[in-house]
């Protein structure tokens, strides 16, 4: 078990290091932020001073290592636009994003998993067909289209809900529904197929053949086994609590991390983009780590098998 944990933890750190490298390579090599921020007509001395203060004129490998060092000490640089620490700027936006993504996650789990389980147990029935239809729609309708259609219906036509901004809790309804519906559909599809797969296994037949009541077979044998693939998807959704809101926040002008990312990217605000990338990676890695631990709890084979095959 200890080895299992160590391997997982090592991998998580490696992923973070890869993201840091990726961020560094892409963001530093792609262009010259100095001219972009200051504009082409600025005197060269000003550009030189700017580059110096941002460390942009040092050799790349030096920038790379000092970047790692800076991150380790919690310094993620300042926003190039207003000079505030990037970490602070991003941290300010996190509550707004979580105010959307956490309820959306609850909505996904609360609808998706029961719908998937029910559909699998009544395969081919009207509910199953409906769930599958909605699940396919949830995959093929992109969130910005769904969001805009909801705006058209509930804001423009009916005038019940605001179409954007963040003043009252009513403003959160449409973004949460937009995110929740698509995710619930995906989760329902996964849960359904995991459940169907499990229900076809010999141990289910054995359990019901030896006289265990059907409800107990479902609770005691089918659900725990179907939980394993489902946990993976839920883990991915938890991991994208920060990243999952980019498009929806933009549709509804919600001042969260996703909106900040889009703005920062169009302004080439390196420090902010890097900070968000790292934040996303950190949540993703943490969620994966938790999923791995849950695997260990759900499936005793994982603990003995020292971590391989847990994909």
């Amino acid at each position: 078990m200890l080895r299992f944990l160590a391997v997982r933890f090592g991998r998580a750190l490696l992923t973070v290091a890869l993201v840091v490298t990726f961020a560094f390579v892409v963001l530093r090599l792609s262009g010259d932020p100095a001219t972009l921020i200051l504009g082409p007509e600025v005197p060269p001395e000003a550009i030189r001073a700017f580059r110096e203060s941002w460390g942009l004129d040092e050799p790349l490998w030096r920038q790379y290592f000092s970047y790692f060092g800076a991150i380790a000490s919690g310094d993620l640089g300042n926003s190039m636009r207003d000079g505030r620490p990037a970490l602070e700027l991003v941290a300010d936006r996190i509550p707004a994003t979580l105010a959307l993504t956490v309820p959306a996650l609850l909505l996904k789990i609360g609808i998706g998993i029961p719908a998937g389980v029910y559909a699998a147990m009544h395969r081919g029935g009207p509910i199953d067909r409906t769930v599958m239809l909605v699940a396919v729609a949830g995959f093929t309708v992109p969130s910005f289209v769904l969001g805009l259609v909801l705006v058209m219906v509930f804001s423009v036509q009916l005038g019940w809900l605001p179409s954007g901004g963040r003043d009252t809790w009513l403003h959160a309804v449409l973004p949460i529904v937009t995110m929740g519906v698509g995710g619930a559909a995906i989760l329902a599809r996964f849960t359904r197929s995991a459940m169907i797969e499990v229900l076809g296994q010999p141990y289910i037949r054995t359990a019901s053949a030896k006289g265990v009541p059907w409800g107990a077979v479902i609770r005691g044998h089918a659900l725990p086994n179907a939980a394993i693939p489902t946990v993976t998807i839920v883990g991915f959704m938890v991991g994208s609590l920060i990243a999952g809101a980019v498009v929806v926040e933009s549709v509804f002008s919600w001042p969260g991390v996703g909106r900040l990312l889009v703005v920062a990217v169009s302004n080439r605000d390196l420090a902010v983009v890097q900070t968000i990338l790292l934040l996303v990676a950190a949540t993703m890695v943490t969620a994966n780590l938790i999923v791995d631990l849950l695997y260990g709890a759900l499936d005793p084979r994982m603990r003995r098998g020292a971590g391989q095959g847990a994909h």
Partner: peptide, 24 residues
């Protein structure tokens, strides 16, 4: 395999956003 794991673990939209806007 490590790169594949990394790619699967990071939301692609975020990576793409970073690359695109910075390379033009």
């Amino acid at each position: 395999l490590m790169l594949a794991d990394f790619q699967a673990a990071m939301p692609f939209l975020i990576l793409a956003l970073a690359v695109l806007a910075f390379f033009g």
